[in-house]
């Protein structure tokens, strides 16, 4: 009796699994079978994954014969996939390193071509009950950087009553994400490191979610991940100077100090369908999606386009 019952349960579970698996693969195959679509493989930056997904979805309406498959994983993952030839274009929230370009040349014989597709302002998030409204780069460096001496909210001149113990809980990212690299460089330049002991989360969205639920926390993430339940601080270049909030205008004017370009890399000049896709991303229709997702669209003559020249 008992064995039979167990077997019965196992059987039910297996049937369910097979049914579910069957549905999934059935859906997939019908998609690929009904049309002979050209597929553009796209992977990379976790910061840009929502944006890339939105582009891909909209492009399916514009150009039904082309399907763009997007995955995240991080800037480094995207570049590794590009070098290995498993993706056509890679999203990147930092510039490719010289060593990576060398490796791409050695592996594929082609030089990666850089394209700036938009800008992102890194927002500094705190809990919504945190009374703080603005912060300076210096203060952030003292919170996050090695040798920095700020560990309590009271040292920043505020009394944070909902945070028991007054400790500043630093939320960071895993040490090889593009966002981490950019934030470290913006705060500390090229030589110093972050203090150990920060909570290093694995995704842009996780950072915001954790800050939402943790009164003592401070964290950083792309401004596209803002929700209604966290507070975004205004950031000043230096203590005493005017602080600016992370928005499109301030990022484009250069007033907001921690804004960065977002890149897409291809191996050699993109050709064919991939080129059409990239051209569409740079067009007004593609750039509208950039702003709809909370990022900063390209604008001709903006002060931050200095490195876009090198891509052409």
């Amino acid at each position: 009796m008992s064995k039979r019952q167990q077997l019965l349960y196992l059987f039910v579970i297996f049937t369910l699994m097979i049914a579910v698996a069957g549905c999934g693969s059935g859906g997939d195959s019908s998609e690929t079978e009904t049309s002979d679509k050209a597929v553009i493989q796209n992977a990379g930056s976790d910061t840009m994954v929502n944006l890339a997904q939105a582009w891909a979805e909209e492009y399916a309406n514009v150009q039904p014969t082309v399907s763009v498959e997007v995955s995240g994983g991080g800037s480094g993952t995207g570049i590794a996939a590009l070098i290995n030839g498993t993706v056509d274009i890679a999203n990147c929230s930092r510039q490719m390193k010289a060593s990576e370009i060398e490796r791409a040349k050695a592996n594929t014989g082609k030089t990666p071509v850089e394209l700036i597709v938009g800008y992102d302002a890194l927002a500094v998030y705190v809990h919504e009950e945190n009374p703080m409204n603005e912060i300076s780069i210096e203060q952030l460096a003292n919170i996050y950087g090695e040798g920095g001496n700020i560990t309590k909210w009271s040292q920043l001149g505020i009394s944070h009553s909902t945070c028991s113990g007054d400790e500043v809980i630093r939320i960071s990212r895993q040490s090889n994400s593009g966002t981490y690299h950019y934030f470290r460089e913006a705060l500390l330049g090229n030589t110093a490191d972050f203090k150990l002991g920060s909570r290093d989360l694995h995704g842009s969205k996780d950072v915001v979610e954790l800050v939402e639920k943790t009164p003592c926390a401070i964290g950083y993430s792309g401004m596209g991940y803002r929700t209604d339940h966290v507070k975004v601080l205004d950031v000043a270049k230096k203590a005493g100077e005017q602080a600016f909030s992370p928005n499109v205008d301030n990022a484009l004017s250069g007033d907001y100090p921690i804004a960065r370009p977002l890149y897409i890399y291809s191996l050699g000049e993109a050709t064919g369908k991939a080129k059409e896709y990239l051209d569409w991303i740079l067009s007004a229709a593609g750039q509208k999606i950039v702003s709809a997702n909370g990022y900063v669209p390209l604008e001709t003559g903006a002060p931050m386009t200095e490195s876009s020249d090198s891509s052409n």
Partner: peptide, 29 residues
């Protein structure tokens, strides 16, 4: 919490060996 530090009590965050591999291998060249 994935935080590199010695725990002084059970309410500290820590990071384990396995989690470090999982978090960093994907993006290490």
């Amino acid at each position: 919490g994935h935080s590199v530090q010695f725990p002084s009590n059970i309410l500290d965050s820590v990071r384990t060996l396995t989690a470090t591999i999982a978090a960093e291998l994907g993006e290490a060249p």
